[in-house]
Amino acid sequence: MNEPVRPRPLTRAPLSARSDRTFQGLILALASVIVLVFVLSVYQLGRESWPALREFGLSFYTERTWNPVSGQFGAAQMLIGTLVTSLAALVLSVPLAVASALFVAEYAPKWLANPVGYLIELLAAVPSVVYGLWALFVIAPILGRWQQGFFADPANVALYTRCQDLWNSGQTTLQCFFVPSAFDGRGLALAIIILTVMILPYTASVARDVIRLVPADQREAMYALGATKWEVISRAILPYARAGILGGVILALGRALGETLAVAMVIGDSQEIIKSLWGGASTMASVIANQFGDAQERLHRSSVVALGLGLFFLSVAVNFLARVVIARLTPKGIQ
């Protein structure tokens, strides 16, 4: 303690040992930036969302009103919007993704399997804004035309009027939930459609990799019992690959939760209770994209960041879950 630290004599620490320590220190310093980025993220999001969380407490995430004019902020609608769009997209995409993985891994000859595999990977590389642009300019008009066709029938118009009254009082019924209400095609349904397309390649490529790793013995044993191809797939391959596919599905869920611009462009940005499949809605990410830039008031701005904080922890939790599922349920030999 009382003696200053002196560098060790050269004889005890040869040049290589010192240079090794220097290099390791440098690498460690750079790698620590990863830790730093995480800590700074939590700190920044926490600090910025503090005013909103102090004002509303944790009920911020369970309160339904989001009204910048009256300064009332609750994230429940966006939380529900995020979960509804993501889970619906997941339900729609999983069968398609697994089927395409089976096609690439089990059915297609090599000359076809490779290009299809390429295309699915390129699908994952298409940027969110480009999906959004396509959904807005191509899919939305199609949905819009279909919804206008719905009103050609006077009975449907009467139904719509009835539902409108219900919606205005903040309620809905199962029938009204499916009645069209947005004639430009934008809304919850379009967001689910585009989200489905966007997360398909993630599940598909994980499923394909896992299916390819199913041991050949597994297939051959089943074939030897006289099984057809579909029987081999449904009873020998899919049960074996189940855990890996589930891991891929949860990873895709993580993607869906944070998907921003494509959803923000098409979902119709409404912070009211979801009353119709065709009506407007919003997700946590879409509200951040649509409102953060315009939020002048401190509380509004802070509430938007609090949405980001919630999204941050939601994504971390989902990714953690995916890792646990893959580690726990995967049979030995499949990574």
Partner: peptide, 30 residues
């Protein structure tokens, strides 16, 4: 075998899952 290795690995995986828009908010604050 470095004691910090598991932390760096875990946080790197965590960062991979954070939505891009949230990173925008972080950079905004920073």
């Amino acid at each position: 075998r470095h004691p910090l290795m598991p932390t760096v690995r875990m946080l790197s995986d965590v960062l991979a899952g954070i939505p891009a828009i949230v990173m925008g908010l972080v950079a905004y604050g920073l």
